[in-house]
Design a binder for these strands. Structure first.
Lengths: 201, 201, 201, 201
DNA sequence: TATGAATGAGCTTTCATTCAT
DNA sequence: CATGAATGAAAGCTCATTCAT
């Protein structure tokens, strides 16, 4: 990519980032044409290629950028250590909500990458193993789960929570810009519900 | 579609069905070319269009066919009524396994339709509301949940189970031919785990 | 390239070959669009790519094909051995004329490759060292030059003749389909003139 | 073009002239992008268009400028009149060498124009008939050829020499900065050789 | 019924040209 | 005078669809 992209006005940068996050997240790589992207970003076709050289270049830039950005935010908010499991999950949720303020589709985009079927698109990603989700896994692994031991193995339970998260996200955020708050509400309810359950054992 | 399709040898019909189920499920609608389809089905390009008129026609046929087929199997195996919730889920799992015998990718395909981003493909579906999954919901709704009342609302719990199912399926079946049995094993374990939890309340 | 090209009717093959030879020879690689090519060949855009995969693929096919074809003709007509120098040159001229019957621009095309400025186009050529012109050089090198010894070194003289040939060709064949006979007439005159000169020494 | 170009520092003017001469000569009109030109000339994109309005405008300026410049030099060095043919040719060669001092690619550029395949580029030239090469022809036509009468018709012989010149130039100057002296050496040798031949008749 | 050569609309990418600074 | 970000028409290439055999 062309580093001069970062010299653009922040507002324009974010338009160009959000256009791709949203369209790729909802439609997938192949179903998103560069025409759609530039229309959503309100730029010309040439400019997209001026900064990102190719569609795959743009795709991998978005992945890099948003991964780095999200990890920065998460690392700032959530320090390593033995947090109570449910408190940790609520902190995640809060961070996600904050991030969605600026990049509404970022979480759906990151999730969509895991389902992406286009080989070229996947091959373009620089460090596909350095995911935001592995940060989640690490924090969850070291969290304090002792109060809920009878519930089930931590692994089973955290992966269940992951599936639930992804499921709700897809149901709620898809196509709707306002989905973030709905996502937050439903995830909150689930966390409360699970914790009550755990406490009653 | 051309009804004469059903006059073909059953083996050839199934090759043509499985090719599409597998490719669409793994790669999505747009990433699957008609060239790939006919190569996988071992038929000529002309034949595909002879029977299904268009790629969307083929896609919607697959959806119709597999939905109808799965509902037939499910209706036969699982009669309406007040089944114990976990027994019901285990019956579902058994039915799924049986169906995968003949159409290995059918479940992943049906799930992939929910994630499909191509508007034309989605628009081609005849009765997109008549899903296999609504059959699940109906049976679950009328199931006997009385033993687990303190667990949480039935809606929350069944939707949680649905998300878990989808999540495991995607992790396990994608790309792997042998995934079905792994899927069955992991879902079994989850069901056992959840039931033990419910019983201990 | 797709070998099935050779299953096409000979007339269509030759239309597809001549279109490229003529256009690339006159306009060069970059100035020739695939739209022009398919219009001249009276085929669709898709077909060009069906057989040759890319514009460079087509270019290198033409070079391979016409080199092979010309060498076959030349090898058949002109056996190795100590021919009289001017008889040899007249035999070359005759062979060229015969080849132009079927591929009018072949010689101009082969010459244009030497002037081609496009790096991708040149990089696509398979064995750019196996030229038709090196066949000329070999036959000339072993020819009988004894009658003209005082004229000048054989090397100087044959390279002079080569430059003359290229110059006349460009002047005469460019843009004109009927140029072949004019080329033959002028080259004949030059050969006569040079031979008379040599004899008079 | 914008006449204020000539108010620029001579050194900058020459950078802008040599960049185009070299690139167009070696790669042709279409294979030379304005990006390459401004990079070689060490100016901004805007400036090129500020002075020359368009790529074709730049191309035709170069042709005009270098033709005028070369003719000025040639007219100064070579006065009309009955020069001995070979002396004349040697004078040409000397003038060319002097011109290459300032504009190394000028001769190759002028030659490349004759091979240019781009119709727009050719159409942009102002007086394409007023070539440097017609100056050569005129002087040759009035030269003293009496000592070599038996050689052959003057027309044939001078055109032969022209082809040889072009051929050697292309072989030698292309891509190589040091080509000018090699060109001079080889042309000198050819002239000597031809003169010896003519004298021996 | 079955084939695969042939088509052309639509997509990604390039690059001459414009224009705000 | 000078810059280079921005534009969009045109080019190369893909692929669903048609049709002669």
């Amino acid at each position: 990519m062309n580093e001069k992209f970062f010299d653009l006005k922040k507002e324009k940068q974010d338009r160009m980032i959000n256009a791709g996050l949203q369209l790729f997240a909802v439609n997938g790589y192949r179903n998103t044409s560069t025409d759609e992207i530039v229309a959503a970003a309100q730029i010309s076709k040439g400019l997209l290629f001026h900064y990102f050289a190719s569609k795959t270049g743009y795709y991998s830039f978005l992945y890099d950028y948003i991964t780095r950005y999200a990890l920065l935010e998460l690392n700032t908010r959530i320090r390593p250590g033995k947090h109570d499991f449910f408190e940790l999950e609520r902190a995640f949720l809060k961070a996600e909500t904050a991030l969605m303020e600026q990049y509404p589709s970022y979480l759906l985009f990151l999730d969509s990458v895991r389902l992406e079927g286009d080989k070229e698109a996947l091959a373009s990603l620089n460090k596909p193993e350095e995911t935001v989700f592995s940060f989640y896994k690490e924090r969850e692994a070291e969290s304090d789960y002792s109060a809920y031991l009878r519930m089930d193995s931590r692994e089973t339970f955290t992966s269940v929570l992951g599936y639930v998260k992804a499921g709700i996200m897809r149901e709620v955020i898809r196509d709707k810009a306002q989905g973030a708050s709905e996502y937050q509400r439903r995830m909150s309810a689930i966390l409360d519900s699970f914790q009550r359950l755990a406490a009653s054992l």
